[in-house]
Design a binder for these strands. Structure first.
Lengths: 141, 141
DNA sequence: AAAGATTGAAATGTCAATCTTG
DNA sequence: CAAGATTGACATTTCAATCTTT
């Protein structure tokens, strides 16, 4: 299982970096923002969703901001907090990269399974995510 | 799917590092060597099995060697090549760490499934790995 | 020249410490 | 003081260049 995971992520990163100069981590961050309310999320919330430490996310958002794909805004209700917001350029880049993303997933992964198997896999994975217990982990949804 | 795997790997790394000072990458390398013929593998072969670049593996083996868990030997038939060999100390450390490894996998993952589901997952994953497709179709552009 | 492996430089991520605000 | 976020120091990994052997 760990090997399967590593294989898919590696190839995804290779293709996204090659065709869109957008490593898989950055891609994941953009798509997470896209799914957030108003295409924005607090830094801390974003960090836990993309499984990065707070400092790791700060640095990643710095890079995205330099590339104009994301913008940081202050929170009117709490001056300690910042929002990361998807910019129009970020949205466009995400849409382009999604084509490659989907192609890789299909080619490397989905291709091996029929619809019933895919549905079953989805169900099984959700069981794991939905239940974070055992040890107090800092990052969970 | 990517999130599920990321979650498991993160927790595995946390627990192995905490209890055995053995990050998941090192653990993976030891167990791969353990499964090799004579508990040894060529550097290049080991690199591809643990999904590390050649240079990445060189440095990882350096660390393991410093810790006495692995030893490097020359190859009599080809002076360019080196073998990484599991030492007795490495085997013992691996055995200890396996307890933690199994506990985490069971708690975080296997616990959610019955035997039939686990068998099915194994089958599905192997389908993906079995295909060493390095360059998928350029459906992106 | 090609293959196996390593080294230097640079990118990315983490932990601990710090700064600001609640 | 606690919470959100950032910064500094450090660890790990990769790419490109290099060295040795085939």
């Amino acid at each position: 299982m760990l090997q399967t995971h590593a294989l898919v992520v590696r190839e995804l990163d290779r293709q996204l970096s090659l065709h869109h100069a957008l490593p898989v981590r950055e891609f994941d961050t953009l798509i997470t923002l896209f799914n957030g309310p108003g295409q924005r999320l607090r830094m801390s919330e974003l960090a836990s969703r993309v499984m990065l430490s707070p400092s790791g996310l700060t640095r990643l958002v710095e890079r995205l901001e330099r590339g104009g794909l994301v913008r940081r805004e202050t929170d009117a209700s709490d001056a300690r907090s910042f929002y990361a917001v998807l910019t129009p350029a970020g949205l466009q880049r995400l849409d382009e990269a999604r084509v490659t993303h989907n192609a890789v997933i299909r080619e490397l992964f989905a291709r091996h399974f029929n619809d019933e198997e895919l549905a079953r896999l989805g169900t099984l994975w959700r069981k794991v995510i939905g239940n974070g217990d055992s040890t107090p982990s800092p990052a969970a949804e």
